[in-house]
Design a binder for these strands. Structure first.
Length: 758
DNA sequence: CACAGGTCTCTTTTT
DNA sequence: GAGACCTGTG
């Protein structure tokens, strides 16, 4: 019996079809990753394809990692040679080798959304564009859209000829691109676009990669944009072994340029394509699938398919209605508690999904209050946190002095007495000589407009950077970070600026150091540019561990590709989900996209699904009264355990009856006792989030008495148990050195660490 | 130049 | 409700 006998008929067919274009329409939970991994194994083991010739592209590093692990288990040999990576990392890898052909330096930096905004702000200032009239975001979105459609500044100008309203956009796009080039930087969209440009400009390079990647597989194909499609098309053009897997019903990234036509029209691009549908779902109960099917069939633009399961119908879908969003959060927390206490589920089985990140806060507070371990995915990307960006900006400056954005960011952090006037003068000077801002700083004492005192404040900064640079080769990345922190007294700066929050932020930096250590350990030739690039391409979801025993809080978007035994969809309200924007835009495809999001949400659930609705909720500082989400109403009443007003046609009963609240309050509220001592909550897998709410007020008074001494055994929120090695008094606080059983030695401030004697 | 205190705007969703 | 932005003061 071979590994392929475990596949169903369609899956097997997909695995065995190795040559020529192949479209696998894989419904949610239909085992598409299984198919992809088995297909790779089959290509290598049975067809004799060299692993080196296989390219598998995913959207997130997490998906790539999982795929690689699973292929490793299937293929005896050579799996590490398969190129499994995301669109963005694939392109970076290629561009690092060849981008000099396009006039960039190979150690280019990658700009995230934050950096883009900084650049745009400056451009608007220079071009006298009122950012109240046209927001930076709007301009950046326009540029992003253009890039996703492979429209460069020149084509953009041609296309906008005669359109007066576009004039500013044309100017801005050109300028923006010029600044990026000057800074030797690429934004996310550039990564794809430049790669395509490279292939189009050099048939030799293209041919090289075509020969290399004879078998190409693309996961989540419904989320590809035009540029990504073109990239894949070019790469596969010679051998035409392009296998794409996707589900048009799960296309949820239109806002990011995803072009659903890529999957809907695949057979038009590739008339010879074989199409295989995977409709058997191995994940969810039949009730959950019925609900998902019922909702999604309201969409016009889709390839018809119907998921079915061999599983039993299972319990009904729960619909719960609440007066406020607080009640909703409380119910969810209580319900999770109850499920865990009953012993049927672990915390890690449960996930709460929501439409907007802002909804996380309330849920988070409730989790904290009830002592439920949880992890929030997303919100502010770990690498987008201020403290992390500061440190990274130092590193970028050391690595590539051409990145003006990075240099300007840290020039006055911590305070060096260099303000905006000085920055402006140096900028002008640098512009005049057409050199980078950093080069300008080096010349500070030659800049006429600067007085000697100011120039004298700049000099130590330049020396600092130069010293880092000269030391880098001998001491490596980890020591560079430590050195930066030490020389700039960065931690003290954080303590000054952020008081209680500083501890979290310092922990975040510690986390960054851990990443650096891991990177240096796993690489034979570690290099700063490469490390920075790896970091630039990390998504929040990449850091989530599924096996953790904690409730996961995440957006519907982040939840794609995941599954959980117990799922709560919170905020099922028209105006929130579907969002206000989609409802009012007048474009019916916007609602369809939201509906696909609902479909994604529902199909994450394996056994138990709860839809939650709150009559009132605070949205951007205002109390909103939203009606029940239309998507809830699209779920057939017989599948739910509660009669949703308006779903069953009870003859014109207009008013929602009082009895509408289905919640048996008495049972579901094991009172939260705020004063009782709750066990501290293990925070996230790697402490990527902060404890909001908890950190306030709970701090030990500064310089008060400590409840522990040297030699005592204590426990820490994140690091667990440890022994106090040393306590030092510092002007502001006690500095405690602890040797943790699991995490090793750490130095922390008593007022933040909240250590508890055991 | 730094900082405090006020006003304004805003979010879907993310590589 | 928070963060970004502006303004006035020392």
């Amino acid at each position: 019996m071979s590994i392929y006998d475990t596949l169903n008929k369609e899956q097997k067919e997909a695995v065995l079809h190795t040559d020529g274009p192949l479209l696998i329409l894989a419904g949610a939970g239909s085992g598409k990753t299984r198919v992809l991994t088995h297909r790779i194994a089959y290509l290598i083991d049975e067809i004799g394809v060299n692993p080196w010739n296989i390219l598998a592209i995913t959207f997130t590093n997490k998906a790539a990692g999982e795929m690689r692990d699973r292929v490793n288990k299937l293929v005896g040999f050579g799996a590490e040679q398969i190129w499994v990576s995301t669109f963005h990392s694939t392109c970076v890898r290629i561009l690092r080798r060849h981008i000099d052909k396009l006039g960039y330096e190979n150690n280019f930096t990658i700009y995230d959304t934050d950096d883009q905004k900084t650049v745009m702000k400056e451009i608007c200032k220079r071009l006298n564009i009122d950012t109240k009239e046209i927001k930076e975001r709007t301009l950046l979105n326009a540029i992003s859209n253009a890039k996703n459609e492979l429209i460069g500044p020149v084509e953009y100008e041609l296309k906008s000829m005669g359109d007066f309203s576009r004039k500013k956009y044309v100017l801005v796009y050109k300028e923006y691109q010029a600044v990026l080039r000057k800074n030797n930087a690429l934004d996310f969209d550039d990564l794809i676009m430049k790669c395509v440009e490279l292939f189009k400009s050099s048939s030799e390079i293209l041919n090289n990669y075509q020969e290399r990647f004879r078998y190409i597989m693309v996961d989540e194909y419904q989320d590809t944009n035009t540029a990504q499609f073109e990239l894949v098309r070019l790469l596969s053009d010679k051998y035409r072994n392009l296998c794409v897997v996707g589900d048009d019903d799960q296309s949820i990234y239109k806002f990011r340029g995803a072009n659903i036509r890529n999957i809907l029209d695949y057979e038009k691009f590739y008339p010879e394509a074989k199409v295989i549908r995977l409709e058997q779902n191995y994940r969810s109960t039949q009730s959950i699938l019925d609900a998902a099917n019922a909702v999604i069939k309201n969409n016009e633009n889709r390839k018809d398919k119907t998921l079915w399961s061999s599983r039993e119908s299972g319990s009904k879908i729960h619909f719960r209605q609440f007066d406020t969003a607080y009640d909703e959060a409380e119910y969810i927390a209580d319900d999770i508690c109850a499920k865990v206490r009953k012993g049927g589920n672990r915390y890690g089985d449960c996930a709460v999904l929501y439409r907007t990140n802002a909804q996380a806060r309330l849920l988070e507070e409730r989790m904290v209050a009830e002592g439920i371990p949880y992890d929030v995915v997303g919100g502010v990307n770990f690498y987008a946190r201020k403290e992390i960006k500061d440190v990274l900006a130092y590193m970028k400056t050391v690595d590539n002095g051409r990145d003006d954005v990075a240099v300007k960011r840290i020039l006055n952090i911590p305070r060096r007495g260099i303000g905006s006037t000085t920055v402006q003068k140096v900028t002008d000077y640098a512009e005049m000589l057409d050199i980078s801002f950093y080069e300008g700083l080096k010349d500070a004492d030659e800049i006429m407009t600067l007085n000697a005192r100011t120039a004298g404040m700049i000099a130590p900064f330049v020396t600092l950077i130069q010293t880092f640079r000269s030391k880098l080769p001998e001491y490596g990345i980890t020591n560079l970070i430590r050195d930066i922190l030490e020389k700039t007294k960065y931690e003290e700066y954080l303590k000054d600026q952020y008081e209680e929050e500083a501890e979290d932020r310092i922990n975040n930096i510690e986390e960054l150091i851990n990443k650096a250590v891991a990177y240096e350990e796993s690489n034979d030739a570690p290099n700063l540019s490469e490390f920075l690039e790896e970091i630039a391409l990390v998504a929040d979801i990449d850091n989530v561990e599924n096996d953790g025993n904690q409730v996961l809080l995440l957006t519907l978007h982040s939840a794609k590709g995941l599954e959980f035994p117990v799922v709560y969809l919170s905020g099922m309200e028209d105006g929130l989900f579907p969002g206000y924007m989609a409802i009012t835009s007048g474009d019916p495809t916007d609602i369809e996209e939201e509906r696909r999001l609902a479909y994604v949400g529902i199909t994450r659930a394996m056994d138990d699904l709860t839809l939650c609705y709150a009559k009132t909720r605070m949205q951007r500082g205002e109390t909103q009264y939203n009606p029940i989400s239309r998507f809830v109403r699209e779920v057939p009443a017989e599948l739910t355990d509660y009669t949703i007003p308006g779903v069953i046609k009870i003859t014109e009963e207009k008013e929602t009856p009082k009895a509408a609240d289905p919640r048996p309050k008495a049972i579901l509220r094991p009172k939260a006792t705020p004063k009782a001592e709750k066990p501290y909550i293990a925070q996230g897998i790697s402490g990527l989030n902060q404890l909001t709410g908890l950190s306030k007020g709970a701090a030990v008074s500064i310089l008060g008495e400590l409840s522990y001494g040297e030699g005592d055994t204590i426990s820490h929120v994140k690091y667990g148990e440890g022994t106090v090695i040393k306590i030092e008094k510092d002007p502001r606080d006690y500095k405690v050195t602890v040797d943790f059983v699991k995490a090793g030695q750490k130095i922390m401030y008593a007022s933040f660490a909240k250590l508890k004697r055991l």
